[in-house]
């Protein structure tokens, strides 16, 4: 029997009296690949941010791992998840290597984990390049390298396919497959269902801050 690693019950998130999420029920099991689809403003990013402890739960209940999704424990949840935002990440004035070194030291991960991660994402020749000089796709790869250095058990990827060319999409499909086979749980948002036949996600369609369809 697989373990439930994420759960939400009637989760509501409000911001300035506007409901970002308006009653979400969700169970995600260990090693599962979950895709949230929907139009802009459907609540995909808000749902991922809630699960990452980046947004407070207004009402309802939830758990991430063994940690309750409440104000008191939001910081503890953040340490258990890896996050890749759709706007890029990290410090623009620092180089690729300096950003990853900062993250590795913050997470108390060995610095020797950085080089293999850079090779895996194809940024080994950009180690000394300032992050602001990277293309959008390369910044996305830098975010993935950080996740590889970190090796979290739960990956939250917000629009990870945005800005990626076909080769980048194929690379990301392969990486997600590998991560899932290693036992990590991956949740991502996307405008469209995944194309790769190798990946067999559970797909939830969101509209108006609610899950309206599960396939």
């Amino acid at each position: 029997m697989t373990t439930t690693v994420l759960s939400l019950r009637n989760a509501v998130v409000m911001r300035n009296d506007f409901p970002l999420l308006s009653g979400v029920d969700l169970d995600v099991h260990e090693g599962e690949l979950v895709v949230f689809t929907g139009a802009n403003g459907a609540g995909k990013t808000s749902l991922l941010r809630l699960l990452g402890g980046l947004l407070p739960l207004t009402s309802g209940t939830g758990r991430v791992g063994n940690v309750a999704l409440d104000d008191e424990h939001r910081r503890a949840i953040r340490r258990n998840v890896g996050w890749l935002g759709h706007e890029g990440s990290f410090y623009q004035d620092l180089s690729v290597m300096e950003n990853l070194t900062f993250a590795a030291r913050a997470l108390e991960r060995p610095l020797v984990a950085i080089a293999p991660a850079l090779v895996r994402v194809g940024l080994q020749d950009r180690m000394d390049t300032p992050t602001k000089a990277l293309s959008a796709g390369q910044r996305r790869r830098l975010g993935l390298a950080w996740l590889l250095v970190r090796r979290p058990s739960i990956w939250l990827l917000d629009e990870p396919y945005a800005s990626l060319d076909d080769a980048g999409r194929a690379f990301l499909d392969e990486l997600i497959g590998d991560v899932g086979r290693a036992g990590a749980t991956v949740l991502l948002s996307a405008h469209d269902p995944l194309r790769s036949p190798e990946l067999t996600p559970t797909t939830y369609r969101l509209a108006g801050g609610r899950i309206v369809e599960r396939t």
């Binding site: 990452g52 980046l54 890749l84 759709h86 706007e87």
Partner: peptide
């Protein structure tokens, strides 16, 4: 607080 940086650093749990 540059775009995306805040979340990436927040999940470092510093």
């Amino acid at each position: 607080h540059a775009a995306g940086t805040r979340e990436s650093v927040a999940v470092l749990g510093l």
